[in-house]
Each structure stands twice: as structure tokens, then as C-alpha cells.
């Protein structure tokens, strides 16, 4: 009887859940300037301060409603931190905050030189993986990492102008840089996995 009743009550509470306003701008939440380059030390410190205040473990013995809200908040802080820590996600978040959405299924990169180079990288990767050539893999990784960094610097430079010039071409080129970053990131991950498999 008691269990049944409890279930009934849970349902009523569920139906009129009160939620707190979550800060959607992760830079604001983390007290960081809204720009691509971030201070990772300050970010980490802020993350700990926020979790110290909102982690559900801090709400044991408080009203259960607050505990539940703390779970939501703490999850939100985790998402924010993960987004800000990853250059590609961070770049995309910056664009999102300006109302620009990247549709990953639709977006295509029109930079032929870039695409050809990517194909070359992939071919070299496959060849090196097949030949179990660890050195070759490491060399590609260094090259990819350098290109990745250049791409990030480009993005950081360009996004500064986004507020002043409302140009479609700038928006397009920023989205293009993010798409390129995705390529570099997944390629680096693949290279790392292959290198690890070979070192075992």
C-alpha cells in the first residue's frame, strides 16, 4: 500500500516539476571572456568551485527537491566544462551563441585543397596501419596536430570580427573552419588509437 502510494505521489510531483534557470552561455557560467582562447587554469578552478556548490553530494539532508535540482545543475556544469575544454565544441558553442547553427549532416567543405590533403592523410594512415609502421603514424599525427592548431588560430582570429561585420561570407568561413576542426580531431583520434594498438 505504501509503495503504491509513493509511486502515485512521485508521479504528481513529476508532472509539475519546477526547474531552475540554467545559464546557457557557458562562458558566463565560467566567468570567462567570450572568446576562443581560454585560460584553462581559471576554467578548472571555476569548475571545482561550481561543483563544490551544486554537486548533489552537497545536498544530502536538504529537502529532496533541492537534491533533485542539484543533479540537474551539476550535470549542466559538467556539460559546460566538457564543451569549453574541447576546442571544437568550444568553437561551435561560440557560433551558437551568435545564433549560428552548424548542420553537420548538411555542411560540406568547399575547400578542394583541404579535401585532397585529407584524402592523402587517410591513405597514408591506412598504409602505415597496414604496414604496422609506428613511426609513419607518429609523423602524420604531428602534421595533423600542426594543421589542427593553425585551423584553431584562424578561427580565433576570424571570430573576433563576427560582431562588427554581419557578413555571410565570414559566417560561412567560420563554419568551414569548425568543420575542418572536426576532420582533424577525428583523424587525430584514429591515429592515436592505431598508435596505441601497435604499442601493445
Amino acid at each position: 500500500m505504501r509503495r503504491k502510494l509513493h509511486r502515485l505521489i512521485n508521479r504528481t510531483i513529476e508532472s509539475k516539476t519546477h526547474t531552475v534557470k540554467l545559464e546557457k552561455n557557458f562562458f558566463k557560467l565560467f566567468e570567462l571572456p567570450q572568446q576562443f582562447d581560454t585560460d584553462s587554469v581559471a576554467m578548472k578552478r571555476r569548475f571545482r568551485v561550481l561543483q563544490r556548490n551544486f554537486h548533489p553530494d552537497r545536498y544530502i539532508g536538504k529537502p529532496p527537491q533541492e537534491h533533485r535540482l542539484a543533479v540537474q545543475l551539476s550535470a549542466h556544469i559538467n556539460t559546460a566544462f566538457a564543451t569549453l575544454s574541447d576546442p571544437v565544441k568550444r568553437a561551435e558553442h561560440l557560433l551558437n551563441l551568435q545564433g549560428i547553427e552548424i548542420d553537420h549532416q548538411q555542411s560540406t567543405i568547399k575547400d578542394n585543397v583541404f579535401l585532397l590533403k585529407q584524402m592523402e592523410f587517410r591513405e597514408t594512415l591506412e598504409q602505415a596501419a597496414f604496414e604496422k609502421d609506428r613511426l609513419a603514424l607518429s609523423n602524420i599525427l604531428t602534421e595533423v596536430s600542426d594543421d589542427f592548431k593553425v585551423c584553431q588560430i584562424e578561427f580565433a582570429k576570424k571570430i573576433v570580427n563576427l560582431n562588427s561585420t554581419e557578413s555571410q561570407s565570414l559566417t560561412d568561413s567560420l563554419c568551414n573552419e569548425v568543420s575542418k576542426m572536426y576532420f582533424y580531431q577525428s583523424l587525430s583520434n584514429e591515429l592515436n588509437t592505431n598508435i596505441r594498438l601497435l604499442s601493445q
Partner: peptide, 17 residues
């Protein structure tokens, strides 16, 4: 009491944020 304190809990959390 749990239901009545729902919005209170939210207000408190909002304030903390």
C-alpha cells in the same frame, strides 16, 4: 509539504546560481 516546497527549492537554487 514536498509539493509545496517544490518552487521554494527552485527559488533557492536560482538564488545560488
Amino acid at each position: 509539504l514536498g509539493r509545496e516546497t517544490e518552487s521554494f527549492a527552485a527559488l533557492r537554487m536560482d538564488q545560488s546560481i
